[in-house]
């Protein structure tokens, strides 16, 4: 017998949303609109996805899977891009980065027989990889801008000593990656201890044995860890160049905006 959550009890979740909302209201955090909007939007999105997934799962995998993946990657790209709108070619860079990562991870999963080529397995697993990579890329973009701003003097000093942009950006890129990857590393460290990871929780609730659930979780956790690291590195290595012109001169964000 399949387990289900009664629909009416979902409405009780509103109580949970009210807690941060009340706090935000009380401390005048200015997040009220954000919280309401995110909740409404998130809920609507999930129901919509549920409906779409039902249809897609009935399509031929060879049609349904690429279709769904394209949609996911496109949405993720639009979202991550927001953090680096000033930078040139940011959309195409993120898009190609996400496609590369998805292809690599898919090849690994299917190649080693970890999952089968069915929408039920590929889509949720890919969703987690793409979602986490999207967040990491956004973080890198945001962080990179502030690091370049903060390290301006040091970068100018390095350039004036004869460093190329790649040599002069070394410290800045390293700091960016460090900052962007800390949540990722922390998550791997505490997995299973602090938080029972989402997928495992889902599988166990769905009636799968804990051991099988752990196996899936291991695959997904490690996949997420590697793809997040990889996507952060890819986007850093592509984007730092745009902080310089061809004459090895450091640009300000204003100048970058103007030139793109």
């Amino acid at each position: 017998m399949e387990r289900d959550i009664p629909t009416y009890s979902l409405f009780l979740l509103i109580v949970f949303v009210m807690i941060p909302f009340t706090i935000a209201y009380y401390y005048q955090l200015g997040l009220k609109k954000d919280i309401i909007w995110s909740t409404v939007r998130g809920t609507a999105q999930l129901f919509l996805i549920g409906i779409i997934l039902t249809y897609l799962f009935e399509l031929e995998p060879i049609v349904g899977i690429p279709l769904m993946l394209s949609v996911m990657i496109t949405v993720a790209t639009f979202h991550a891009r927001k953090k680096g709108k000033e930078l040139p070619h940011v959309f195409i860079s993120i898009l190609l980065g996400l496609i590369t990562i998805e292809l690599i991870v898919l090849a690994m999963w299917l190649g080693f027989g970890m999952i089968s080529f069915t929408p039920e397995e590929v889509i949720p697993m890919s969703g987690m990889v793409i979602g986490n990579s999207m967040v990491a890329m956004g973080l890198v973009l945001e962080r990179m801008k502030s690091e370049f701003e903060q390290s301006r003097g040091k970068i100018l000093a390095a350039l004036s000593l004869g460093a190329t942009p790649s040599q002069a950006s070394h410290i800045t890129v390293r700091k960016t990656l460090n900052a962007a990857l800390i949540p990722n590393i922390d998550q791997l460290k505490t997995i299973g201890l602090v938080q029972l990871p989402g997928m495992m929780t889902g599988l166990i609730l769905g009636g799968v044995s804990p051991i099988v659930a752990i196996k899936y979780q291991l695959v997904i956790s490690i996949s997420i860890f590697s793809t997040v690291s990889l996507s952060a590195i890819i986007i850093s290595l592509i984007m730092y160049r745009y902080f310089y012109n061809n004459q090895m001169q450091l640009l300000t964000l204003e100048e970058i905006k103007k030139s793109s």
Binding site: G153, K154, A157, A158, L159, L161, G162, A163, I171, M248
Partner: peptide, 24 residues
């Protein structure tokens, strides 16, 4: 000036910036 390689030029024509920003 723009016929010289930039890193070599900057090594040969050394600049000390007004603000002394040191590397960590």
């Amino acid at each position: 000036l723009n016929t010289y390689s930039i890193p070599t030029l900057r090594k040969e024509v050394g600049l000390v910036l007004q603000e002394p920003h040191l590397f960590p």
